[in-house]
Design a protein around this nucleic acid. Structure first.
Lengths: 246, 246
DNA sequence: AAGTGGTCTAGACCACGCG
DNA sequence: GCGTGGTCTAGACCACTTC
């Protein structure tokens, strides 16, 4: 049950040491070099072996504990979680909430307009009702099959949107390129039945079950920069997440 | 924009200092004492003021950053997130995945039996096909209205289940009382249409949209201890989560 | 140049589980 | 009693932003 484990870190890399270690451990776990149930050596030994301090070693392991790959028990030790841990929805990534299951994703813009914000949108974006916002509707498809219907609102003051680049780069990339930083997103996930329009656009029967998601994204100082409502075909999409007890 | 903020910690409490600080800050934010957009004093000053070391102060703030209440920016400072942060599904809690929206929850056991594990269940629980597992089906209601249909499997080797205590205490409490520790859960959330039986039990029309959730829970050494599939009425239930960029 | 958060170290002591 | 993870300290240097 001991962990031989050939790890190495580059102290001159700009990548933080704890991140290098976490990455190396994660790779070892995902490749099966550290099979489920393996007991790791204790933190002090591991730290010494890599010429790291214990806090740095711990910080690396903390990440993997939160990601659900390791389990720690005081007085006992640390083990690799014993089950086929499917790659979970990476909570670290806001970049793309679509798992590209092999296919090539494309996006079509159905509508793009500057409109005055209604009360609810203004509230969500921290604006006054009537302030101008972009309102956009898009369909995302993989392999030609429609998968998601996305409706979003963005304050006009934050960036400029145009149809072509939206389809090319995506909303987030476009906004990021104009200096918007995404830091946080609050999401709500539920289920709704497809109405006539949604059904037609997604290629399902009216009444079909859809995964519904509403989101508000905030920038690096906590200001709302985007809000939206997405629906996904329930037969082709789901969210994964890992809960950790602490 | 300065933060006066009257904080205090008890160095003799068994509660970790970083947790006391995080709790105090969270309370101050949720009560509005620290309104959205407030800039906090820098970490060193805050640490000094509480007679704490900077790492301890940082650890407290890390928690709130992950929870989506604070936002940090290098070279600039730390601010309270600027939006009505609704109380999010506490990722820290596995105890109850139901938001008791005022109502009083009750649970009815529809079925409880010891059966040999089928292939899929055995796989999920790390058993061999044919090993004995409890199979249980329950309906959870609030205010007399059915809300969720829960189907679960538990290895018989881990605990003993009986109908009465299941209804009284719930599955997790019952297992915990028998020494099972819950550490991790992997969940998948999607949408399905209600079949005839689900519709009847939940009091909705067949075909109605349901939130579907499958979960496998692991104990403190990463062994699977429970797996299950729940469906919730889509018109009464949703999941909330906060994503953080790091 | 000054101020901020980001990282890292080298210790220390404690609480818990186990033999 | 011993080994483990859990917590905490008092520094240090760096990277980045702002003025």
């Amino acid at each position: 049950m001991a962990a031989p484990l050939r790890l190495a870190v580059d102290k001159n890399s700009p990548v933080p040491l704890y991140h290098q270690v976490a990455q190396a451990l994660e790779d070892a776990i995902r490749t099966g070099e550290l099979p489920p149930g393996t007991k790791l050596d204790n933190e002090i030994d591991l730290a010494n072996r890599l010429n790291l301090s214990r806090p740095t070693m711990r910080k690396a392991m903390d990440q993997l504990v939160r990601a659900g790959l390791l389990v720690r028990k005081r007085g006992v030790g640390t083990q690799v979680v014993g089950s086929q841990v499917r790659r979970s929805l990476e909570l670290s990534s806001l970049h793309d909430d679509l798992r590209s299951s092999g296919g090539s994703p494309t996006t079509a813009v159905l509508g793009l307009a500057r409109v005055p914000a209604d009360e609810e949108t203004a509230q969500l974006l921290g604006l006054s009702p009537g302030d101008e916002v972009y309102h956009l509707r898009r369909v995302r498809s993989t392999d030609g099959e429609p998968l998601a219907l996305m409706e979003n609102w963005v304050p006009c003051s934050r960036c400029e949107l145009d149809r072509e680049r939206l389809e090319q780069d995506g909303l987030y990339a476009l906004m990021r390129a104009q200096g918007v930083t995404f830091q946080l997103a609050h999401q709500r996930v539920g289920a709704v039945a497809a109405d006539e329009e949604q059904a037609a656009l997604l290629g399902v029967e009216p009444g079909a079950a859809l995964v519904s998601m509403t989101r508000t994204a905030l920038d690096d100082v906590g200001r709302p920069v985007e809000t939206g409502h997405h629906v996904y075909r329930g037969d082709k999409y789901s969210f994964e997440l890992t809960l950790v007890q602490h």
